[in-house]
Design a binder for these strands. Structure first.
Length: 277
DNA sequence: TAGGCCATCTGGTCCT
DNA sequence: AGGACCAGATGGCCTA
């Protein structure tokens, strides 16, 4: 695509190729192939490491509730842990391991009875449980922060913010953000050309030096457009993966909802990115 | 029911 | 040593 060509911003926003996605899609494909059988619903995995914690989480957040509910669950788990420590007179040694702390026992079952491939793991002291739970909590917090940042990014991306439209997935958010940045960069570039043209033909309307500096400043940070050729390959990869939206344009969802054309045309997004709630 | 998306746990690695 | 970051594994929810 000629970068100097005047474009409809919406079209550019929708069709610019996702440069960084190639490896990502490849990884996703590999992921699906490698673990597809394991991930089928109902599969019972021997480790059970997450199962026990998930069981607790499920009790706290019936039916995979909203994001915030999961956080409640996390904090509750830590509360239980703290209570456990209090019940143990605040002692932080391992001497109290395996005692009457039934709450701790219930959600920390993994640490007690974890079984992989028939091998019983040794019991871990409570201090290790505390360390592990703290690490888990930190990781959860880190991912929550990451998701918060993604939410902020979503909030500034011009897409359908209607409550009837499901929020963008993580990958869609990143792709659209990238396209939006490229669209803005191209718009600036085009404006710069127009101003240059006007400047040449009508010296009397020369823009102020200050505004012109902003364009030259922009040129110091040129947008890399040379890698966009990879898009076709990436896009076709999406199609190979069964992207039903590959034809682009609006589509009706099962309950009659309609996705925004400017987002779906070009189909750079994974399927089921946007649909009515 | 398969596949997409997600949250979470976990162990490893790197950095301070 | 502790925290941040990362990637793999797992299971749940939802949609087509």
């Amino acid at each position: 695509m000629d970068n100097n060509e005047l474009k409809n911003p919406a079209d550019l926003f929708a069709t610019e190729p996702p440069m960084f996605v190639k490896g990502f899609c490849h990884d996703l494909d590999g992921f699906g192939q490698d673990t597809g059988d394991i991930r089928k619903p109902g599969h019972i995995f021997a480790s059970g490491s997450n199962a026990d914690d998930d069981e607790v989480t499920s009790k706290l957040n019936a039916s995979h509730g909203p994001y915030i509910d999961k956080r409640k669950g996390d904090f509750l788990m830590l509360d239980i842990l703290n209570k456990s420590n209090q019940n143990n007179c605040g002692c932080d040694d391992d001497s109290n391991a395996g005692e009457t702390d039934t709450e701790m026992e219930s959600f920390g079952q993994y640490y007690e009875d974890n079984e992989i491939s028939g091998k019983i793991k040794e019991r871990k002291p409570k201090s290790e449980k505390v360390v592990r739970l703290n690490i888990n909590a930190r990781e959860r917090r880190r991912m929550h922060d990451l998701n918060d940042a993604l939410d902020e990014l979503r909030s500034v991306i011009p897409y359908a913010h209607s409550p009837s439209v499901r929020k963008l997935s993580k990958i869609a958010t990143l792709l659209l953000a990238k396209n939006y940045i490229m669209m803005q960069a191209n718009a600036l570039d085009e404006m710069r050309r127009v101003i240059g043209y006007m400047n040449a033909s009508m010296p009397a309307v020369t823009p102020s030096s200050a505004s012109f500096d902003s364009f030259t400043a922009f040129r110091r940070y040129p947008v890399e457009l040379t890698e966009v050729d990879a898009y076709d390959e990436v896009f076709s990869s999406h199609q190979r993966r069964g992207d039903r939206d590959a034809s682009g344009g609006s589509k009706k969802t099962a309950d009659g909802g309609q996705t925004p054309d400017h987002l779906m045309s070009g189909s750079q997004l994974p399927s089921a990115t946007l649909y009515r709630k």
